[in-house]
Design a protein around this nucleic acid. Structure first.
Length: 265
DNA sequence: CCTATAGCCTGACGGC
DNA sequence: TGCCGTCAGGCTATAG
């Protein structure tokens, strides 16, 4: 699930529910989710503290603790957050449970355990160490910088879009949507896009798709009618021209596209 | 350096 | 019903 729009929605959710409440205790349900930190250290860092704010870079969520530390949450393919009170409401694969003094809980759920939880000094240092590219919605990421990212590579445009070291936040699902909105096939060479001046449309589509998805809180039910994503399956139909969608393996993932609306350069 | 590919982990689904 | 293969909205370590 979690690409940029999803993680942005998690951030807003966390900030609307879980800030400024004393943390009574935490329970690490799956040790393997913790990166370079023991459950004991994590517990010591959070107990009696509270969360004060949150920020996001790409698919990473950073939650600031009142003692100055930050908790880093990455959601893998299946992660999400859930704020709840009744124990019966705890999600099925809760890997970290944070119990607040007011009786509520915040659960980090990850069915496939492909995510990561860490305790870090500062998000900026983390981003630098991970060599993450600029966030896809960073205002400083203008079209010229975007262009540079795409011209100096020999890979496909979908692969480049999903490479977190080039631009952070886009994964398999949203790269399909962005390429559909830009009218470009996923297996086109990235550098060719720059030659052919299609790069401006790709840039515009990226910003528009991600912003629209955030407005819909990453819920497909609220997506614009011309979005490809809800049709992304066998026998799926293009929302524009009604052709059957096609799929191909690109970057080891399944790409869906409209053979009529998306051109081969 | 660059790019492509297995492997990690768990569960849901379709076909037999 | 049960079993098996396949696939899944991510990323890393490795090979070429």
């Amino acid at each position: 699930m979690p690409e940029l729009p999803d993680v942005e929605t998690f951030k807003q959710y966390l900030m609307a529910t879980a800030l400024h409440q004393e943390i009574a205790d935490i329970e690490v349900r799956s040790r393997q989710m913790l990166q370079k930190v023991s459950a004991a250290v994590m517990r010591r860092a959070l107990r009696k503290s509270s969360f004060v704010t949150a920020r996001r870079h790409g698919k990473h969520l950073f939650v600031k603790v009142s003692n100055g530390k930050w908790v880093m949450l990455h959601f893998g393919m299946t992660g999400f957050l859930k704020y709840f009170k009744e124990p019966a409401r705890e999600p099925a694969h809760s890997r970290l449970d944070i119990a607040f003094a007011n009786g509520y809980h915040l659960a980090y759920d990850s069915q496939r355990k492909l995510g990561e939880i860490a305790l870090i000094e500062h998000p900026e240092v983390f981003v630098k160490e991970k060599k993450l590219g600029p966030d896809a919605l960073d205002p400083h990421l203008d079209v010229d910088r975007f262009k540079k990212v795409f011209q100096k590579t020999n890979t496909t445009v979908k692969t480049a879009l999903m490479d977190q070291k080039r631009i952070a936040g886009i994964g398999n699902i949203y790269s399909d949507e962005i390429l559909f909105q830009a009218g470009i096939r996923p297996e086109n060479k990235s550098s060719k896009l720059v030659e052919k001046e299609d790069i401006h449309r790709l840039y515009g589509a990226m910003k528009e798709v991600l912003e629209a998805a955030i407005r819909a809180q990453a819920d497909p039910a609220g997506f614009p009618a011309d979005f490809l994503l809800p049709s992304r399956q066998t026998d799926g139909i293009c929302p524009r021209c009604r052709s059957y969608l096609e799929s191909a393996t690109v970057a080891g993932r399944t790409a869906w596209y409209c053979p009529v609306c998306q051109k081969q350069l």
